[in-house]
Structures are given as structure tokens and as C-alpha cells.
Design a protein around this nucleic acid. Sequence first.
DNA 1: GGCAACTGTAACTATATTGGTTACAGACGA
DNA 2: TCGTCTGTAACCAATATAGTTACAGTTGCC
Lengths: 160, 160
Amino acid sequence: MSTSSRFAVAVHVLTLMAWADDEPLKSEQVADSVNTNAVVIRRMLCELAESQLVVSQSGAMGGSKLARQPEQITLLDIYQAVENRGVFSLHRHPPNRDCPVGVNIGTVLNQVLDEVDTAVERVLANITIKDVVSRLKPCVSTAVTKRKVMRKEHVLTARN
Amino acid sequence: MSTSSRFAVAVHVLTLMAWADDEPLKSEQVADSVNTNAVVIRRMLCELAESQLVVSQSGAMGGSKLARQPEQITLLDIYQAVENRGVFSLHRHPPNRDCPVGVNIGTVLNQVLDEVDTAVERVLANITIKDVVSRLKPCVSTAVTKRKVMRKEHVLTARN
DNA sequence: GGCAACTGTAACTATATTGGTTACAGACGA
DNA sequence: TCGTCTGTAACCAATATAGTTACAGTTGCC
């Protein structure tokens, strides 16, 4: 279905910022962790800023950080900020209105797709960025030596 | 998210067949209701046949019909037959393994995406093609005169 | 048997979305 | 005022879906 990684990347980005605590991160740093181009990240940061999830500052010593506490940002907030469509789409071209099924299948499908979207949103609304960071920490402690300095200097250093 | 209408079209197709009762439908008829090309429909019918949701017959007087009763086909069956990916995708390129967040965000994201997929599947598993037809009928009776013969002769005639 | 009506499928094009890249104007701290 | 950032435009590449033509193979019917 989704051929897009926008949600995954956005969660990654905000998790990095929660991890960084209140230190503004440069788009280059974020791009290096996500393994993509800094412009791709800056584009996404603009969308996240429009939804008031991050704040960015231009100029030397600039960067972006969370606009509010990690426990006050849900995955639903992120989803709504970067994925505007629902889970499924209806027909590209409207069905034949001369067919008793075609003329009304859209109504029924919309009901179904609404139920699906609601179910997805219920799941996402119950997970915050703080939860993601918490789920991350056990993995990190076993995978990375604590306070290990990363090889690429602008990649985040493990905390704790 | 989904830029694809495959699920919507597949539900439409199977609903048509349930509506047609046991009469095999030609790909041209189906395409005319969906408002697309017959080859697009035949491609999809092949996928639906592989998942044993429809049976098709070649040759003169051929066509496709449901492989089992409408109440025995759920939207989850259809979803799994035509949309192989989950609701969200992970990063296109794997994140930086030298970053404590990058190296483990995939694990956490996969947990989340599993929860989302499960929620979607729970919704779809509880709706059958028979349910869709039932939800369709009230719309139809108000929108189309009963037993009205469609203008294009190969579009289905309303029943009841 | 032979014809006409179907499906199955290959091959190609069109369209849309996402992601990657370069380039540059403007903001800002030192 | 210089170097370091963000914001953004413009363009290209990659991918997936949809649409189209064409045709081999299957089947019912005369």
C-alpha cells in the first residue's frame, strides 16, 4: 500500500530530537542518521513545523528541536502532519453511475475506509515519542556501548 | 499514503459478482461498472483467483464468479489478495548503524507498524462481501428504480 | 471442423508520488 | 562581514499503478 516512508522517517526525526534533549539538531546531522539528503529532511521539518511539532532556527548555530515535550507528541500528530491521505484510496475515476453497484459502492467504501482510518488513528494516538524513546533504550544499551562516541562526529552520541 | 485504488476496485469487483448471484461476469462488464479497462480487471481477477476468491472460465460464455459464498469472503481476504505491503513502509535505505537511534529505530517502528496492521486487519476481517451488498441495497433502492434496465446493456441490471 | 467469444498475458506507454540533488536567497551568531 | 545555518525552487531518478494494444489459447456452438 504505502510506497512512502514519510511516516517512518518523521518518527525517526522526532525521536532523534527527543534523544538530543533540547539541543537543536542541524538538518545534516539528522540526514546522516536517517541516511538521506539534508534537503529531504529540511522539507519534512517544514511540514513538522507547520504542525507545531518542531521549531527551527536559521543562521549559524541554528537547527531544529521539538516544539513540546516528547510525551506530548503522539504518533497520530506525526501521521497527520506528514501523511495527508487515508490508508486506502477510492477509485481513480468514479465508477459507472448507470450501474446499481457502481453508483453506490463509493458510499459504502467510504464507510469502511473511515472505520479503517479510525482504527489506525486509535493505535497511533496511544503512542508518544517518549514511548518510542523508552522502547528504544533497551535495544540501545545492548547494541551500543554507553557513551560511546560515534565514528562520524556529527552523528549523535549514545546517552545514559 | 496509499496512492493505489486496488483494494477499492477489488471490493467493487467482488461486490458486483455477489450482486450477479452466480452468473459469470465478463471482464468487459466489470470494467464498465468500475470505469476502467478490461485488461486491468483481468489482471486483478488473476490475483483474486490465485487467492481462491473467484473462479474464471475461458472461452465463449466464459467469465468470472465468486469462488464461495459472499458471507465467506471478508475484506481482509481481499486486502491480502491485492495489497501485499503493510499500511506503512520503513525507510527506503536503512538508517545509519553508527547512530544509537538509527540502529534501533527499525525494531521499534516495526512493532508499531505491526500494531497498526493488526488493527486494520481486525476491522477488515469483520466485514464480508455480503455485508457490503447489504449496506449497498438501501442506497440502491433510493437511487435506482427497481429492476431498471441499464442504458448500456452490458452493465448489470438492478435486482430486487 | 471452424467460427466467435472469451480469458490470460506480454509489452509498452502514461501518470503520479516520492526521494535525491544542486543551487541559492535570506537569517543569524560571532 | 563572514561563515554557518534554514527555506525553497527546480530538476532528475526511481517506483508503482493504471491504461492500451495485441495476440495466443480456450471453449461453446453451429
